[in-house]
Design a protein around this nucleic acid. Structure first.
Lengths: 192, 192
DNA sequence: CCGAAACGAGACATACGTGTCTCATTTTGA
DNA sequence: TCAAAATGAGACACGTATGTCTCGTTTCGG
């Protein structure tokens, strides 16, 4: 890859169009898994032929958006300083960061349990640091240790998806609402 | 509808097959919205021709399972004595009753917000008594009145679907777990 | 037991999505 | 400005699901 490939300088719009296609496909497939390649193209304001120039076939496009969603979630978690502060504070940052990736989060969480095994494995790998944070919180005495860490992570993801579905705009108040509900539930606080 | 229809006594297996088809379709479509009519037929241990004898087309089948899911949810709520006891006790009964209708519940909750408007309207109508129960609980001082009743209902439904997805068998412990998590969240209880 | 109704099996036309291809046009980067 | 690359438009063959139909067989109900 030196003299044989003289100048692989790619045009700027190629990367932009690819991102537009992945974003549109993530949104369309989340809303309607039966969406056709033509639907995706139209949602991205491109044509069907161009979609096939970026992705060999439908399976390749689906693999790309799965990978993109995992990358976004992984990147969001990487910016959360998972070891700084109490586990409760960390969960607050995680909820804010993930709610900013609403579409990818919904797509990632709602994937069927019988879909691509590689995706499921990578998702478990991406989410495992969260379970570690929860375990730390249980050791710190801040999180209920009668609940399994996996259930707590599932609860957080479910609330996040539900909230983001109701208010798709990345809102700080939404993140705060999810955090409060996750931590304390819907019962009336005792001393208040 | 008297002399013109002499004896509309339908055979017993017709109703049974219809129920098998609706049950199979609910499960298949929930797991894979792209499932074909042939997939549904095979899941119900019938043939494609028979499916079309029961339902004129795919749209009719989909409408039937939407209606069936709403009927099941409505029936489950009707057995919950929504006005007896505290709102917290009612929510416990509701969670138990709905978790027994796992498949229909998942199908009902996960329907896209841009699907059939009639379905969405009926769903809102079926769920509205739950919001009333929540409001009563807020007046009783048992539920947090800083949270909107709609969000509390959404939270309950989301947790229910998440739990039922992880453990599809109608388990009493699952219902108890959902109830506890809904009410008190995942934080460590204070005096314990 | 017997007739009517429902079913299984399978052929059939049709509609639609997929993936490939060509050619004219637009856009990027040097 | 200009050549190369990317796109738009649309034709094309192909595979698959849909919906309808027929005919022989099974099953329910009186």
């Amino acid at each position: 890859m030196d003299a044989s490939s003289p100048a692989p300088t790619r045009r700027s719009d190629v990367a932009r169009h690819r991102e537009m296609l992945i974003a549109a496909a993530t949104e369309e497939f989340t809303r309607n898994p039966e969406a056709s390649m033509g639907d995706i193209a139209r949602a991205a304001e491109l044509t069907r032929a161009t979609v096939y120039r970026h992705f060999a076939n439908r399976e390749a496009l689906e693999a790309a958006i799965r990978s993109d969603a995992l990358d976004r979630a992984s990147g969001a978690l990487a910016d959360c300083r998972l070891d700084d502060g109490t586990a409760v504070e960390v969960l607050g940052r995680v909820i804010r960061a993930l709610s900013a990736q609403a579409m990818s989060l919904r797509f990632m969480v709602l994937q069927a349990p019988d879909s691509d095994p590689e995706f499921l494995a990578r998702r478990a790998q991406v989410l495992s640091p969260l379970a570690d944070v929860v375990r730390r919180g249980q050791r710190e005495g801040l999180l209920d240790d009668r609940l399994s860490p996996e259930w707590i992570v599932t609860t957080m993801a479910s609330l996040l998806v539900a909230a983001v579905r109701a208010a798709p705009s990345p809102d700080v108040e939404v993140a705060e609402l999810v955090h409060r509900t996750l931590m304390f539930g819907v019962a009336k606080p005792a001393g208040d």
